[in-house]
């Protein structure tokens, strides 16, 4: 039943997304994109249902294969020599971590639930943050956030500098060398390929379809819908199973909400972490610190004008 409700809600958001995409493609469109509908879609992952079958991983690979990199070899010689070549083209079948050819993988945790040792599995991919640092801090605008909350990297524009990965609290984007725009500019001196990550099947959503991982899951682990509805559902589910939530407040809020029967702190201790294998730690809002200065920025001209006016008044008094 839950899935039916979420599908309806999802389709509402899909139309909003399509409207947003259409607005984006109008040449010379107004500076501030004002999509009619600004509903961010979020996904709820009930990890107590996940059996780790990897149907989602296979579906993701199948549906997104046409977006995967096709690097040209040999790669250009890069300067200085410390610039790393990252080549996954010979390891396209790796599914136990995130790679440019695998945007979703299953993470395993062995935990103690009610005195019993259990293996918990959970799908991991981009969290699609509400205010995504990968998008906001990309120096070229290659990463973009759609009106429906999807953050995605435009492989035609990305230069592969990997800044998005460094500013991502979970190090999600993965680089493939030897592909993309940098080859046409200064391949030896600037750029290093293209960054890849889950785009939550933005094109399928624009067509009113479900993301492949959601559609393929036999256990209906994932539900998609407007973020506020998904948050409500997550809280209801957490209350029902006496569980825990991850992703609601991490990095200021994400559009990927996990609900687990065991604390994420426990899961984080036992999952394999490292390159291409994100953690489950609490994450503070990475964009907040600088954004808090926005008020000071708004007041700065007032302070400057006040100082000049003060000088004017002082000089006028002195003349009198």
């Amino acid at each position: 039943m839950g899935q039916k409700i979420s599908r309806r809600a999802f389709l509402r958001g899909g139309i909003a997304a399509a409207a947003g995409l259409a607005a984006s493609s109008i040449p010379g469109a107004s500076a501030a994109a004002a999509p009619q509908e600004k509903t961010q879609l979020a996904t709820l992952l009930d990890i107590s249902k996940c059996v780790g079958c990897e149907a989602c991983v296979e579906a993701c690979n199948e549906v997104n294969a046409n977006k995967y990199p096709q690097p040209k070899k040999p790669f250009p010689k890069m300067y200085p020599e410390r610039v790393p070549v990252e080549d996954w083209s010979e390891k396209q079948d790796v599914t136990e971590r995130l790679t440019p050819y695998n945007w979703l993988f299953i993470q395993h945790a062995t935990v103690n639930v009610n005195g019993e040792e259990q293996e918990i599995t959970l799908p991991r991919r981009c969290m699609h943050c509400v205010n995504p640092p990968c998008v906001k801090l990309c120096p070229w605008g290659a990463a973009r956030q759609l009106a429906n909350g999807i953050s995605r990297i435009d492989s035609d524009i990305c230069l592969g500098g990997s800044k998005c990965k460094k500013v991502c609290p979970w190090d999600i984007p993965q680089r493939q060398t030897g592909t993309g725009l940098y080859l046409d500019i200064l391949p030896s001196f600037a750029g290093n390929g293209v960054m890849y990550k889950c785009d939550r099947c933005y094109n399928r959503i624009a067509d009113g379809e479900l993301p492949a991982c959601i559609e393929a899951c036999p256990e209906e682990v994932q539900t998609i819908g407007p973020r506020d509805e998904i948050i409500q559902k997550a809280h209801a589910l957490a209350k029902e199973i006496n569980g825990y939530i991850y992703g609601e407040n991490e990095n200021g809020g994400t559009n990927t909400i996990y609900v687990s029967p065991v604390p994420f702190e426990e899961l984080n201790k036992t999952i394999e972490k490292g390159k291409g294998k994100p953690h489950l730690k609490p994450v503070k809002d990475t964009m907040a610190q600088a954004n808090n200065l926005t008020t000071a920025m708004a007041l700065a001209p007032v302070a400057g004008i006040a100082a000049a006016v003060g000088k004017f008044v002082r000089l006028t008094k002195n003349r009198q």
Binding site: A23, S24, I26, P27, A29, S30, A31, A32, A33, K38, V130, N131, K136, L137, P139, W140, G141, R144, Q145, A147, D154, I157, G252, G253, M287, A290, N291, T294
Partner: peptide
């Protein structure tokens, strides 16, 4: 653009950058 909810069309962001 960097504020939460701050969103412009991608082409405009590229232009700004």
């Amino acid at each position: 653009r960097n504020l939460s909810g701050g969103r412009f069309v991608p082409e405009f962001i590229i232009f700004l950058d």
